[in-house]
Design a protein around this nucleic acid. Structure first.
Length: 550
RNA sequence: GGUUCAGUGGUGUAGUGGUUAACAUGCCUCCCUGUCACGGAGGAGAUCGCGGGUUCGAUCCCCGUCUGGACCGCCA
């Protein structure tokens, strides 16, 4: 403004306004965005304060200026509401990270870690590092293999998790362990998944589930207070897996809003409606329903979109009905008897102009399909606030999952998970019904942590391996070192692992895990900044005894 | 591996079978003594991702390919 020059000077803590008189310091004419400056002057109250800015009351009446370094015009706008796409931001990540909003997220993430670390340190947990280069094991996710230079043709695997080592630390008698552990999984990425990610890995001895839950809840309460200044209380909801699916259609339910699923199977046991008839002929055939008050205003296009969501999530379709004049309207309604219609309206307590959505399939499928529709309604109708944080435990997961195609059971959590004490006798007669001492911590529909009490009885462990189809020989070869360790007196133990990146994503209200990782990989598993992975020198390959074919 | 969406000045978008390829922002020059999403005047900046085809003519239509996003499979 004439000879008056205003400059916003930014550092990590924020922005301060400088005021120069160009006639007294002509160098100020040369200053451009992102230059590094040294300024001397007097901090003063502003003549015209700006109440919208945290530092809007003051300014620096600048006297001298040194340009410490110049800067080219950056390819992206360095401000919180930058218009650059993520692809461009990632390529110039070091500029993207200059944006205050990004710095805030990294600082908040650090505070989350610090608070967890302090809590664990104060409660007798010992921070112990375990190897990243370790042995390839058959169960679980695909591993990154690292060729051994010293031993031609042999490989390390990058740790998918410190699971085996932390259990060994319990065998060793360290009682309480934690580690901020980097883990590696060679699987395809998602908005909430990375190749290398961080777990807050925890293991304890001699604790019951209830005792362990309380410790973890206290830690979370502290994190919420420190990071977001939100007061929570311990005693989080413990929701059995069965109820989570039955009521919310998910094993990681978002309980910030209602729209719970109802089971209406009984009403339609004699239904002539082909869709229901067919579903009820299945094992555990189930009919689930959601009622949305005043949802009758939904257009055909809108309900079709919900049907697509249901189909995408494993069910054949969605029955859409509207309540009008105390009866049902919709394609399927003509198949219902008047008794069935009024029983449904009564059971769902459906008022006039309600929308009723139903799925019919085997129990878990019907629940999951309608659960996905429930989340679609949440997003469509904005039923939640991002600054609302609802924690719960999902507990009592089944021990096994049955894989139809291979006609066999696999461990739902992992093969070291302890079955419920009073159900071990069912292992032979009805393995599908056996529940386990495993649990997930869920926040706003995200699984932020998962864990279990472990098997400490050698015989039960062997039984478990046998159930999932390992021969004695295979066990010895792959897990021999692990099983042997249990022979010498193993305390009952169990633990959990928090997905730190995902947890930080939810707490910072970010849409992607990439926002809370300084240098993340993109969706096609590349580092946009360094462009890794890349080809290497032949000499390097020779040393590793590796030849590229093709 | 699959489904799907996108690729046009530095950035983000609009648009069309024949255009001077539009808008916003950024950038440069000048004016402005209280701005803070400043304002005013002017200016530079685009092989419309790449290859092929259809056509008199393709940024636009078709095929292929590459890059990126979301999702499914996968992730004990």
């Amino acid at each position: 403004l004439g000879s008056l020059v205003f400059i916003d000077l930014r550092d990590r803590t924020g922005i301060t306004q400088l005021v120069f008189d160009e006639t007294k310091e002509s160098l100020v004419r040369d200053v451009r965005n992102e230059y590094i400056l040294e300024v001397k002057g007097i901090v003063a109250l502003r003549r015209d304060p700006n109440p919208k800015l945290p530092t809007g009351e003051i300014e620096v009446m600048a006297e001298t200026l040194t340009i410490i370094n110049t800067a080219e015009v950056p390819p992206i706008l360095i401000q919180d509401d930058t218009d650059a796409l993520e692809e461009t931001r990632m390529k110039y990540r070091y500029l993207d990270l200059r944006r205050p909003t990004m710095q805030k997220k990294l600082i908040q993430r650090a505070l989350i870690v610090k608070t967890m670390r302090n809590y664990l340190d104060d409660n007798g947990f010992i921070d112990i590092e375990t190897p990243m280069l370790t042995k390839s094991t058959p169960e679980g996710s695909r591993e990154y293999l690292v060729p051994s230079r010293v031993h031609a043709g042999e490989f390390y695997a990058l740790a998918q998790s410190p699971q085996i080592f932390k259990q060994m630390l319990m065998v060793a008698g360290l009682e309480r362990y934690y580690q901020i552990a980097r883990c590696f999984r060679d699987e395809d990425l998602r908005a909430d998944r990375q190749l290398d990610f961080t777990q807050v890995d925890i293991e304890t001895s001699f604790l019951s589930e209830a005792e362990f839950f309380l410790i973890m809840e206290e830690m979370i309460v502290k994190v919420m207070k420190e990071v977001l200044n939100i007061e929570l209380t311990t005693d989080f909801l413990k929701l059995p897996f069965y109820d989570a699916l039955n009521r919310f259609g998910s094993d990681k339910p978002d309980i910030r809003f209602g729209l719970e699923l109802s089971d209406v199977t009984e009403i339609f046991v004699h239904s002539e409606f082909p869709v229901f008839k067919q579903a009820l002929s299945l094992k555990q055939g189930t009919i689930k329903a959601i009622v949305l008050e005043n949802g009758a205003t939904f257009s055909r296009k809108e309900t079709d979109a919900l049907t697509e969501v249901a189909k995408k999530n494993g069910v054949k379709g969605l029955v859409v009905l509207k309540v009008a004049d105390h009866t049902l309207e919709g394609g399927a309604a003509k198949f219902f008897t008047p008794e069935e219609s009024s029983a449904l309206i009564a059971k769902l307590n459906a008022s006039e102009h309600s929308l009723i959505l139903m799925t019919a399939d085997a129990w878990e499928k019907a629940c999951v399909g309608l659960g996905a529709v429930r989340l679609a309604l949440r997003d469509k109708l904005n039923l939640t606030r991002k600054d609302d944080f609802a924690y719960l435990w999902v507990v009592d997961f089944p021990l096994f999952e049955y894989i139809e195609e291979e006609q066999k059971f696999v461990a739902r959590h992992h093969p070291f998970t302890r079955p419920k004490e009073d159900q071990i006798h069912l292992l032979d007669s009805d393995p599908g019904a056996v529940l386990s001492c495993s649990y997930d911590m869920v926040l706003n529909g995200f699984e932020i942590a998962g864990g279990s009490l472990r098997i400490y009885d050698q015989k039960v462990q062997e039984k478990m391996f046998e159930m999932i189809g390992f021969t004695a020989e295979q066990i010895k070869k792959r897990f021999g070192f692990f099983v042997d360790a249990f022979k010498y007196g193993t305390p009952p133990h169990g633990g959990i692992a928090f997905g730190l990146d995902r947890f930080a994503m939810v707490l910072t209200q970010s849409d992607s895990i990439r926002d809370v990782i300084a240098f993340p990989k993109n969706a096609s598993a590349r580092c946009p900044f360094t462009e890794a992975p890349s080809p290497v020198e032949l000499k390097q390959l020779d040393e590793l005894h590796i030849k590229i074919v093709k």
